[in-house]
Computed example of a mutant assay.
Amino acid sequence: MEFDVVQGDIAAQSADALVNAAGTSLEMGSGVAGALRREAGEEINREAMEKGPVDLGEAAVTDAYDLDAEYVIHAAAMPHYGDGQATAESVREATRNAFETADDLDCRSLVLPALGCGVAGFDVAEGAAIIAEVIDDYEPETLEDVRLIAYSDEEYDEIRAATGRAETSEMTDAGEADR
């Protein structure tokens, strides 16, 4: 399985599935969820809310609506908004469940943020290192291309350093990796 760290807006990415950094309620508020909701439309939030709540670390799937993906996998790395922060275990479980869900859906490509590291307050470097460990240990069935996305320059540099990945692809406006 190929693994890159890329920089850009997750809502502008093209993949079989995009991962939302969700809370257990699955309500799409701010951060990654807000960016995906703004691009996909309000229908995605309604569908996500119908599938929630889920247990911490679990994942649920919705249509991607107006996003350039087939699915959005809502991985609950944090408790319901305002009820607490992400933990190393919740980041690990949400990441693993997002990969398993993508494989169950026969996805070949997946883009995910540093789960639990935004609104949920988990340390970006520690979260990225946990996600890289899960990626390195995961034996995919269909997944071939996994991209861990960072929005800001600072987050990008921090994630690259934490995952041990050398300089990687820069993103174009369309969200495709230049190779």
Rank of each mutant, 00 (worst) to 15 (best):
V61N: 03
T62N: 02
T62C: 01
T62P: 00
T62I: 04
D63W: 01
D63F: 01
D63P: 02
A64R: 01
Y65E: 07
Y65V: 03
D66H: 12
D68F: 01
D68P: 03
A69L: 05
A69S: 12
Y71G: 04
Y71Q: 04
V72F: 03
V72W: 01
I73E: 07
I73T: 08
I73P: 04
A75W: 00
A77I: 03
M78Y: 06
M78N: 07
M78V: 11
P79T: 09
P79H: 08
H80P: 11
H80N: 09
H80C: 09
Y81S: 11
D83N: 13
D83L: 11
A86R: 02
A86P: 03
T87S: 15
T87Y: 08
T87E: 09
A88T: 10
A88V: 07
E89G: 11
E89D: 15
S90I: 10
S90Q: 12
V91N: 07
V91F: 09
R92E: 15
R92F: 11
R92L: 12
A94H: 01
T95S: 14
R96P: 04
R96L: 15
R96C: 07
N97C: 08
N97H: 11
N97L: 05
N97F: 02
A98F: 00
A98I: 03
F99L: 15
F99M: 15
E100K: 08
E100A: 13
A102H: 03
D103L: 04
D104M: 02
D104G: 14
L105I: 12
L105A: 13
L105Q: 14
L105M: 14
C107L: 10
R108K: 14
S109D: 12
L110Y: 01
L110G: 08
L110Q: 06
V111P: 04
V111N: 09
L112M: 15
L112V: 12
L112F: 06
L112P: 06
P113C: 14
A114L: 08
A114K: 02
L115F: 05
L115M: 08
L115C: 08
G116R: 02
C117N: 10
C117Y: 07
C117K: 02
G118A: 09
G118D: 10
V119Q: 12
V119T: 14
V119I: 15
V119A: 14
